[in-house]
Nucleic acid binder design. Structure first.
Lengths: 133, 133
DNA sequence: GAAATTACAGACTTTATTTATCTATAATAG
DNA sequence: CTATTATAGATAAATAAAGTCTGTAATTTC
């Protein structure tokens, strides 16, 4: 079980956008160069963030991607859910007479992780990053 | 990102062993039937639990698998680590000047989940299960 | 309006991981 | 010795992740 690379790209892109809060949109070309990933692949990932309402896109010359919320309103969990989906990490496929107790505990455990990620905002990380430069 | 089915099989097998604490070893045949999984595949999984020191195996007639610790000394995390490994769920592969801040937060988040799983013992679940029968 | 620029969508390929299966070997009880 | 049971290794099949390619739509610039 691993977080996908796509989630890593998404988090880094969002952190960059929050840290630099550009007034005009950033093209996928530049965003991709910074991470050594192909523009077409990154654009797929960013489209998911658009659909999740975290960023907005503009076509045409001088187009690109721009934040749709402030950095203190974007959590790690928002981004992770946009990429990985919101389904539980654990699925008991066995047929039980009643609800699976193991499943219940796994969901609670996952909830602990999600609580942390829900309360960790991009702005906090951006400030920390900028302070260390 | 999903927990593997193997982890599910491992957790269910351990819960069964803890709940029934048989004096003589249980064969993989019977354990596999209960979960509708092939014995050869389950035996692969159980071998991992043996190597992790959670259960012990005996070859030959009347052989099988038996607990090596009490149920209150076996945590969810013990079992999950035995199957999934102990590596972090998140690997930042980008080359950073200094340590990746995103990685650091992800590790902390994961730690929250692990804390819960480390403190959740098989015995607790076994009791709950037996009470509901 | 034409040309350049940029995002979006879908099909496709490649690679990696998970889920198994098969077969042979080793250990043990009776 | 024979039946039973676990272990190891090779292999196959299925699924998921990572990435590419191509064409289309939207927008700006001229």
């Amino acid at each position: 079980m691993k977080y996908s690379k796509a989630t890593n790209y998404a988090l880094h892109t969002m952190l960059f956008l929050v840290a630099h809060t550009p007034d005009k949109p950033m093209g996928v070309q530049q965003l991709a160069e910074r991470q050594n990933v192909s523009p077409t692949y990154l654009s797929k990932i960013l489209t998911k963030l658009v659909k999740a309402g975290l960023i907005e896109s503009a076509s045409g010359a001088n187009g690109g991607y721009r934040l749709r919320r402030k950095g203190d309103e974007i959590s790690f969990l928002d981004i992770i859910h946009a990429i990985e989906g919101t389904a539980s990490l654990f699925d008991c496929t066995l047929d039980h007479p009643s609800e699976c107790l193991i499943q219940q505990e796994m969901v609670k455990a996952e909830g602990q992780m999600e609580d942390y990620l829900r309360n960790k905002m991009m702005s906090e990380l951006a400030e920390k990053m900028l302070a260390c430069q």
